[in-house]
Design a protein around this nucleic acid. Structure first.
Length: 898
RNA sequence: GCCCGGGUGGCGGAAUCGGUAGACGCAGCGGAUUCAAAAUCCGCCGCCGCAAGGUGUGGGGGUUCGAGUCCCCCCCCGGGCACCA
């Protein structure tokens, strides 16, 4: 055995051994229980960043742990290879996206291999390869024929200078990222997946996923946004036409003071025909990006159309306004505005001097007021501000000050007022009564509405999976027949940033119509890259299948037992993948309803961002590795001049703040990199990157190596003894020294804890800490007698096994020295070693910690109370008076309440 | 703006079911070893205080014998918002 720990040597040797034995091959015909462990595949952006290392180490720890416990483990890897960054690189460097992508894949694969992940590389796939996307196209044509995919108009960001569609990310402050031109909204035809047809099932399915984090399920449920409300109509004077709106607050119908419609609403267009000012306003609304965040934060603007509608119950005449805060894509593209009880309506009404009518009495539900009332009841004096507020609320609520308003606007708790016959009704009763009255007049009904919209997948981009449709003047949109698939994307193209280069490729565009044979045009839009990532997990089961999308092997491996990926995918990717699984199920391709049984959402690895701004306003992002921070000033290492500090953000290509883990691996080895990332923070929490602490992880591994080396200098000791351990040369009645029994108890407690931390809690930092504590305790154990050496051997064997999922190279090398020829398996807890005779309880007096008492482990409440009362602390703090009450928490503490 | 998380020493974090706040590690300080340094080993290390003791988990209030943990209000930071992946 080498005296010194040389990670590079160890890792090279062990990795070669794994390669030779095919250690990570997942067998389709293995009868043992399977464990399909999947980490989200990376976008091949160039090199691994710390987020990848973290993600894949978590997956690897779980995969290796389960392998040690006897599971047939599959851990595959692939490449989410289509996407925008490849086109950006092409624009910047003139390299074809295909060549750039393949080069990146080769480099990143080598990095993953250097990290020693237990990946079955025989299942590797890349989504940009025709043998992968062919089946995506095949499924597309099937779904198109079924009507699950359809075509309609949709709004995109249009850069009028570059003459191209922009991604939301490419719109910065309402301008195109390259041209700087003001972005416009433009309507173009797109293909849509009818995900809304599955909305109910996607929502209900969340309840069948106990292995998913609650927060992810909540986010998805809110995203789907099922709401029951009322769809109701306002009549137009002098015509049969109806203006429909959807509302979840029909109980506030009597408080409607205006109706607001989206700029794209047909009614607005009609009014604008005779009103140039209105037409100009509608045009103005078309400026800016389509991103919802932008829509929601922009200044609310509106204009009176001059049109009037009639309130369906009161018959009142109500003005119709056009406003940019109403979205055409949600509900009916029109809302009934109740300024007293909706925040946006309220703001709008105040801005334009529209009337506000309170129709819900909800003062008790006010948070601020509730607190004030509670304080008053406790006779706490209110602050001047609170008192003033409470008073103004009580007396002048109807004056609609901004603050007072906030205290009733959104509540469903109050009862109707100022609402005629509905006065006094609560939320549900009022909605029911109003819906019934509307139904009787044919002006409304209860309706379930979803926030979720159909999934538009057309992208006006080159580097993506071609949409397999041919446009024929005679036959219309014709799906490409299965025999003619795949529609292959030419790989020799270099985009220049002005539109989709496929349009300029006659050899791609021109083709005969598959139906009538006449000359036709191929669709040049490609698919959203979320489509590829929605089914890759299934393809890993049969990546070599040449004549179908999936075969029977899919159900052998699916659903995925453990899925691991960034929290940033909590909604979109995970919802689309769940949706796709149901589409594949309904095509008979898989049997299960959900793709991922257990989900671990790792927190983001974040890092500081730095940039320099050019005169044009364009920002150049600078990698933190190239920046030096001195006395709070950030300087570029290259030129020593300052750069702007942009805040801490998710590591990303676009902000260029990824930290390259390669330096870490080169210097300390993969095991140190893995140990440190697992030790730095629990997986679900975000991790602010810093290099400090890596040394500590490396030191620990060196110490472990040295401890094993020194122990083995005296030869291997025999296997662990059965409990209870006997002392050396002692007779049967005499037990081993206390120190040895204590260490063995700690050892078996640690085995228990580490297994629980990995398997149930999925918290590896505490598992590592427990092993470190055990090693610290071992270091204090002295002596070279047979019993001591045997326990030392037992501890070291266990420590190496417990760490093996995290630091597999060093673990395997040390295990081979400790137990030649043996295979690493998970250590077994010796229950007898855990037994304790005496325990220490904390002693509190009036809830304050005042000391401790030692009692027998089996002591009952009476004995514990007696011991507590007899203690020094009790004498001192009770001053002779008997306690009023004694609280005993078994195994923990005793509290004397005086 | 809306939805979802988070906030604990100088730093990363621990405290799993309401029961010893700060495990483990980093940094720092002191010591041993060394010609010296690195490496290594030992010890100290929330804050105030000489001490006794007090105080302390973003801020304010509450429930409880007992609150980092539960409830109410507020502040700050991160993620997502449908064309970044």
């Amino acid at each position: 055995m080498q005296e010194k720990y040389l990670p590079q040597d160890v890792e090279r040797t062990i990795q070669q051994k794994w390669a030779v034995t095919g250690a990570f091959r997942a067998r389709d015909d293995d009868a043992r229980p399977r464990y399909y462990c999947l980490s989200m595949f990376p976008y091949p952006s160039g090199k691994l960043h710390m987020g990848h290392v973290r993600n894949y180490t978590i997956g690897d720890v779980l995969a290796r742990y389960h392998a040690m416990r006897g599971f047939n483990v599959m851990q595959p890897m692939g490449w989410d290879a289509f996407g925008l960054p490849a086109e950006n690189a092409a624009i910047a460097n003139g390299v074809p996206p295909a060549a750039w992508t393949y080069a990146n894949i080769d480099h990143m694969r080598a990095q993953l291999q250097a990290l020693g992940f237990a990946i079955d590389w025989s299942r590797e796939l890349a989504t940009c390869k025709p043998d992968y996307y062919r089946w995506e196209q095949w499924l597309f044509t099937r779904l198109f024929e079924k009507g699950v995919i359809y075509k309609k108009m949709a709004t995109v960001n249009w850069d009028p200078v570059d003459q191209t569609v922009l991604a939301n990310e490419q719109v910065i402050d309402g301008r195109g990222w390259r041209s700087g031109a003001l972005v416009e909204k433009r309507d173009i035809p797109m293909y849509f997946f009818r995900i809304t047809r599955y909305a109910d099932e996607l929502l209900a399915g969340l309840d069948t996923l106990p292995g998913w984090p609650e927060r992810v399920k909540t986010m998805q449920a809110n995203w789907i946004g099922r709401s029951t409300g009322v769809r109701l109509a306002f009549k137009t004077p002098g015509s049969d036409e109806l203006l429909w709106v959807f509302t979840t607050r029909a109980d506030t119908l009597m408080g409607v003071t205006f109706v607001a419609v989206a700029a794209e609403h047909p009614l607005a267009a009609r009014a604008a025909a005779e009103n140039p000012a209105l037409a100009a306003f509608i045009d103005e609304c078309k400026q800016g990006s389509v991103a919802e965040a932008d829509m929601a934060t922009m200044e609310k603007k509106g204009m009176d159309t001059g049109l009037k509608v009639i309130h369906p119950i009161s018959g009142e005449v109500i003005p119709v306004w056009v406003s940019n805060y109403v979205l055409m894509s949600y509900g009916e593209g029109a809302v009934m505005a109740v300024p007293a009880h909706d925040e946006r309506d309220f703001g709008f009404a105040r801005q334009y001097g529209l009337p506000i009518r309170q129709v819900i009495d909800a003062r008790e539900s006010s948070g601020v007021l509730r607190q004030a009332i509670a304080d008053t009841r406790r006779n706490r004096a209110l602050s001047a501000e609170e008192a003033e507020f409470a008073e103004s609320f009580a007396e002048h609520a109807s004056e609609f000050t901004d603050r007072a308003w906030q205290d009733w606007y959104a509540s469903k708790e109050g009862v109707c007022i100022n609402s005629g016959k509905y006065d006094g009704l609560g939320y549900e009763a009022a909605v029911d009564a109003i819906a019934a009255d509307l139904a009787a007049r044919g002006l409304g009904e209860k309706k379930t509405q979803f926030r979720l919209r159909d999934w538009g997948i057309s992208r006006q981009r080159y580097w993506g999976c071609p949409i397999p449709i041919v446009h024929c003047a005679t036959c219309g949109d014709v799906p490409v027949p299965a025999a003619q698939l795949p529609v292959v994307l030419p790989e020799d193209v270099v985009p220049d940033g002005s539109g989709n280069p496929l349009n300029k490729r006659a050899d791609f565009v021109n083709c005969p119509c598959p139906r009538c044979g006449k000359p036709a045009r191929r669709e040049t839009d490609t698919m959203d890259t979320f489509v590829e990532s929605s089914w890759y997990y299934a393809r890993y089961a049969c990546p070599d299948l040449a004549d179908g999308m999936l075969d029977a092997r899919a159900d052998k491996w699916l659903p995925v037992d453990q899925y691991i990926g960034g929290i940033e995918h909590a909604i979109l990717h995970l919802l689309y993948a769940r949706f796709f699984h149901k589409l594949m199920r309904d095509e008979g391709l898989v049997a299960s309803d959900e793709p991922f049984t257990n989900l671990l959402t790792q927190g983001m690895v974040v890092a500081d961002t730095y940039y320099r701004e050019e005169a044009s306003g364009k920002k150049t992002w600078i990698n933190p590795a190239d920046v030096e921070v001195k006395d709070g000033v950030a300087l570029l290492k290259a030129d020593g001049r300052p750069v702007v500090v942009g805040g801490t953000e998710k590591m990303s290509k676009s902000k260029n703040n990824g930290v390259d883990p390669q330096a870490l691996i080169d210097r300390y080895g993969a095991d140190t990199a893995r140990l440190f990332t697992m030790f730095a923070a629990p997986p679900e929490q975000s991790l602010e990157w810093s290099d400090a602490g890596v040394e500590g992880a490396h030191r620990f591994l060196k110490r472990l190596w040295k401890t094993v080396y020194e122990h083995l200098q005296g030869g291997r000791a025999p296997s662990p003894q059965p409990s209870p351990l006997k002392g050396e040369g002692a007779n049967d009645a005499q037990s081993a020294p206390q120190a040895i029994n204590d260490l063995r108890r700690q050892l078996h407690q640690t085995i228990q804890k580490v297994g629980d931390d990995i398997e149930r809690r999925k918290q590896f930092n505490t598992a590592i800490a427990a092993v470190m504590e055990l090693m610290n305790a071992l270091a204090k154990l002295e002596g070279g007698d047979a019993t001591t050496r045997s326990v030392r051997q037992e501890v070291l064997e266990a420590v190496v096994a417990l760490l093996a999922p995290i630091v597999p190279h060093i673990a395997e090398a040390l295990y081979a020295e400790l137990k030649p020829g043996a295979t690493l398996t998970w250590p077994v807890v010796d229950a007898a070693a855990l037994v304790q005779d005496e325990i220490e309880l904390m002693l509190q007096v009036n809830g304050k910690l005042r000391g401790a008492v030692r009692v027998a482990a089996a002591a009952d409440k009476v004995a514990i109370e007696a011991a507590a009362l007899a203690s020094e602390a009790a004498q001192k703090y009770l001053e002779g008076r008997p306690p009023k009450k004694i609280v005993v928490v078994p195994g923990r503490l005793v509290n004397l309440v005086a």
